[in-house]
Nucleic acid binder design. Structure first.
Length: 210
DNA sequence: GTTCGGATCGTCT
DNA sequence: GACGATCCGAACA
């Protein structure tokens, strides 16, 4: 399975669901940083009121969404950076936002990058994950995954099986269009502590893995 | 443990 | 000049 096939040929929400439990790794050359994807959101393109590409809106900042599936789309929001992967063919501006990982590789370095914050606070949000990787710019925006330090491991045997994957509404979406704002396009490992806003009382045994 | 409001800056109008 | 696909610390329980 290569990135092009993986990020096209299926509906974007289906790909998003499939990414849960797969390793996401960032390796600039000196050390492997990353963990298992535990939370991600699908943005369904021109019709999706919550997407940056809603209504066909196109600008230098959201150009990445219009590139071919497997292209990295990094964007800035306030002082923070977010990591997306474009889906579908070129000019079909759909994408996936990786929201959270359960840290596994290079934890000590990621804690340093996060200014000493550890535990759940290390990577339980899209901008926190980028900080943990030490990314503070859009350097890799518009690069194809295989031409970047990012690796999404598509080997099924490396995918950590979740006990249950929940579909829920996306986070931080403007409610002006309740139809799109409430669509269940966010997927996460039930009870995993690294899912953003996961309440302690909802933590699952074995972090929600089988 | 959970909620609330302010910070802060790239991007588009 | 206004607005976020957020984060953090302070306040309250």
């Amino acid at each position: 399975m290569n990135y092009t096939n993986y990020f096209t040929n299926r509906p974007t929400d289906e790909i998003t669901h499939d990414l849960i439990g797969r390793p996401l790794i960032y390796n600039e050359g000196k050390e492997k940083l990353g963990g298992y994807i535990v939370e991600a959101e699908a943005y369904m393109g021109k019709d999706d009121r919550a997407a940056h590409s809603y209504g066909g809106h196109r600008s230098p900042a959201n150009e990445g969404l219009y590139r071919r599936g497997g292209t990295i789309y990094i964007y800035a929001q306030r002082q923070y950076f977010f990591f997306d992967v474009a889906c579908q063919e070129e000019n079909e501006p759909q994408g996936i936002l990786i929201r959270a990982i359960e840290p596994v590789w290079g934890i000590d370095t990621m804690i340093k990058n996060r200014n000493g914050k550890s535990g759940v606070l290390l990577t339980n949000g899209p901008a926190k994950m980028m900080q943990a990787f030490g990314i503070h710019d859009k350097n890799w925006n518009l690069h194809f995954l295989s031409d970047s330090p990012f690796i999404i491991d598509l080997e099924d045997k490396h995918r950590k099986p979740a006990q249950e994957i929940i579909a829920d509404k996306r986070v931080g979406i403007n409610q002006s269009d309740p139809i799109w704002a409430n669509k269940k396009l966010r997927y996460y490992v039930a009870g995993n502590p690294y899912v953003s806003d996961m309440k302690k009382r909802n933590y699952a045994k074995n972090n929600g893995w089988t």
